[in-house]
Design a protein around this nucleic acid. Structure first.
Lengths: 208, 208
DNA sequence: ATAAGTACTGTACCAGCGGTGCACTTCTCA
DNA sequence: TGAGAAGTGCACCGCTGGTACAGTACTTAT
């Protein structure tokens, strides 16, 4: 049995505050989310909140850090799974995209929203540090996907002239945009279907 | 010479208020945008503001309506231009996408942000009426693009099995997502380049 | 010339918000 | 059992959206 490090009481409260805050932020924006509603739902006092976070910007930062770490972990998992199923770079990537789409399709009420996208549309509210975190997040995703595409292109010459950075960015774009469309139309399946569209594009560009 | 209906003094002020508000909302979110800063920048008093808008939600609605109407007009223009240059549905669509990408690339400091996307990430702040407007906007775009794709598919059988609704949605997705990426990375050219990626996909699916 | 809108200004007021500071208490675990 | 972790309670601040209403300057039709 795997021994999971138990969370202390303080860490549990902190996580609960972050859960409640994230849900609220994704539906009302950061400025529209009041501390009062967070502490009310968490059953804690305002002083208790400030024991965990210096101020509201500190909450914003912790929220984003946790979100990025989690996304990170998910992509690592999926890539690892895909790599175990094939040695071919193209197949790896296509498997990864299928696993990703499946994962997104399995979220009960649809994807709750991308915190990074939400932050980008409220950039003036945040410190330079937080803004740099969103930028860095996107840059890292580009690099990770780009590495995979480089390996693919080395073995399968693309059928059309293409910039691999653009193709890497397209996954982020399609995902971020499809989350918005999914939420707006209340059609959770739009998101996984759009990822599969991107997959179809990759397949057409590299396959024989 | 075309006689353009001149704006009355009141309409001018209203437009200025909307311009200022939109810019602020796209950078701070709706709740994060204070009326005080809007009226201050517009050089008007609070009473003056409430002469033009019943309350803040009325401003939100007017802002979205104007944005949707404008997007609408732009797409109509581009489709009309494209239709004048060719009779073939595939060429029409490809020309439209190129014109669209060029237009986006010509925006001086990059696209300021999609108000619809911003609203979707703050849905709880708005009345049901405003929320329905964003949904309807996305539904209409899907239908418009879908019509074009139907005509294309009738003449050029797609190389792969594909759902044309998904392909129509993909343009919205890619555009919305690429705006976020552009803003986050401070690279305005990401947006037009992503539209061209979508164009390449369409071309691969339908071309010989 | 004047009367009737249009497009505002000025003032006063309200509850709720994010945020700060600090003294105090209760819980938890080594 | 004692020390630190994890809070509570309370007082206070300036800003925010919003309401109410009386007054005024500008424009235009008659």
């Amino acid at each position: 049995m795997v021994q999971v490090q138990a969370l202390s009481k303080g860490e549990q409260t902190r996580e609960r505050l972050l859960d409640i805050a994230q849900d609220a932020v994704l539906h009302k924006g950061f400025a529209g989310t009041s501390l009062d509603e967070i502490i009310c739902e968490a059953g804690i006092t305002k002083s208790g909140f400030f024991y965990h976070f210096r101020d509201k910007n500190d909450l914003a930062k912790a929220l984003l850090q946790r979100y990025l770490d989690n996304e990170w972990r998910i992509f690592d998992d999926l890539f690892r799974q895909a790599d175990e199923l094939s040695d071919d770079p193209l197949h790896n990537y296509l498997i990864f995209l299928k696993l990703f789409a499946d994962l997104l399709g399995d979220i009960p009420n649809g994807h709750p929203g991308c915190l990074v996208a939400s932050y980008v549309y409220q950039d003036y509210l945040f410190s330079q540090e937080v803004r740099r975190m969103t930028t860095e997040g996107h840059r890292i995703w580009r690099t990770r996907f780009r590495e995979r595409l480089d390996r693919i292109a080395a073995r399968y010459p693309p059928k059309i002239e293409i910039d691999l950075n653009d193709m890497a960015d397209m996954l982020s774009s399609v995902a971020d945009g499809a989350i918005i469309l999914s939420k707006s139309l209340s059609q959770p399946d739009v998101l996984p279907r759009q990822v599969m569209q991107y997959r179809a594009y990759v397949k057409l560009v590299f396959s024989a």
